[in-house]
């Protein structure tokens, strides 16, 4: 048997894969890892298929015990994180972005994110909960997927699948990882950019923004920093499909960047969206963080996304 027992759940830990394709037509958010590239990297580090399910960690990670009789290989990608292996009364420090082994009865203790917000833990064989509508991702809004459609709680048992591939021989270095600098996210024009003042994108990029406490996987809410004024011209539109990283501007002028658990349709105008290469930076934002935006062309954004894909460990 291969299984991990949740001894401590952490602040918010969910089972995620690359999300539900073709589910938006049922009103189901795509869900999946906030930063799919980081989950793919973690999966490759342990020899999994890219779409194997792992755990998304938020701020404070869980403590997991190998409750089976086989050694389980695991790897963590995303934010820098304090993690250690509890073995025979000893606490051995582990590295992020490198595979490590958890023997039967041993515990993986994931402490707090050291900067950033989210991490993705892959285990060789993947978290083997049942597929629901083509995915193992947790759908909190529909209360299905993952473990009971909710975040993990102490005592949950995570079934782990059979090992398929061999671990990567190299680690992962994310070319767009958070640094000590204020994160700067590349912006593309959104579908309603023409319905705002011509300088709207410039204004979005001119001032720093602060992440509001009411931010989660549905959306990251931003407020102007240091008394700067909110954006003007926010308005409603005939509701239309939403994309990951799209920036809604409601009439109050405080932008909301849409996350993986966003409603599939939305009725606020979207003048901009975050470039795909910087979704990892977006996922790393915690309440109180300051960020900036910079305009990019579509060609530049595609090139950046390609650069991040190419940096993944080989399969």
């Amino acid at each position: 048997m291969r299984a991990l027992c949740v001894r401590r759940p952490g602040a918010r830990t969910t089972v995620e894969d690359l999300g539900r394709a073709d589910a938006a037509r049922h009103g189901i958010p795509p869900g999946g890892a906030f930063d799919g590239i980081a989950l793919r990297a973690a999966n490759r580090l342990v020899g999994n298929r890219d779409d194997a399910a792992g755990l998304e960690l938020t701020l404070l990670g869980p403590e997991l015990e190998n409750a089976g009789d086989e050694t389980i290989l695991a790897a963590l990608a995303g934010a820098p994180w304090g993690l250690e292996l509890l073995r025979a009364g000893e606490a051995l420090p582990l590295e992020v972005a490198r595979p490590f082994a958890i023997g039967p009865g041993e515990r993986l203790r994931l402490g707090a994110a050291r900067g950033g917000l989210r991490g993705w833990l892959a285990v060789a064989g993947g978290v083997d909960v049942p597929l629901v509508l083509g995915s193992r991702a947790t759908c909190a809004a529909g209360r299905f997927g993952g473990i009971g459609g909710r975040a993990l709680v102490a005592g949950d048992l995570l079934p782990i699948g059979a090992v398929e591939g061999s671990p990567a021989s190299v680690g992962w270095r994310d070319p767009f990882a958070r640094t000590d600098d204020v994160p700067c996210l590349a912006l593309l024009p959104g579908p309603q950019v023409d319905r705002f003042a011509a300088d709207l994108l410039e204004r979005l990029c001119a001032a720093p923004w602060e992440v509001d406490a009411a931010s989660d996987r549905v959306g990251i809410r931003l407020r102007p920093r240091d008394g700067a004024s909110p954006l003007e011209g926010g308005h409603g539109i005939p509701p239309e499909g939403t994309t990951l990283g799209a920036i809604q501007v409601p009439p109050d002028g405080a932008p909301i960047v849409l996350g993986p658990d966003r409603p599939v349709t939305g009725g606020y105008a979207k003048p901009a969206l975050v470039a795909r290469a910087h979704l990892g930076l977006l996922a790393s934002l915690r309440p109180g963080d300051v960020l900036r935006f910079a305009q990019a062309t579509l060609e530049r954004a595609v090139a950046l996304a390609r650069e991040r894909l190419d940096a993944l460990p080989p399969r």
Binding site: P30, P238, E240, G241
Partner: peptide, 10 residues
């Protein structure tokens, strides 16, 4: 994904 909207398809 294909998403029907009130005046659009994404």
């Amino acid at each position: 994904d294909l998403v029907a909207g009130a005046r659009s398809v994404l």
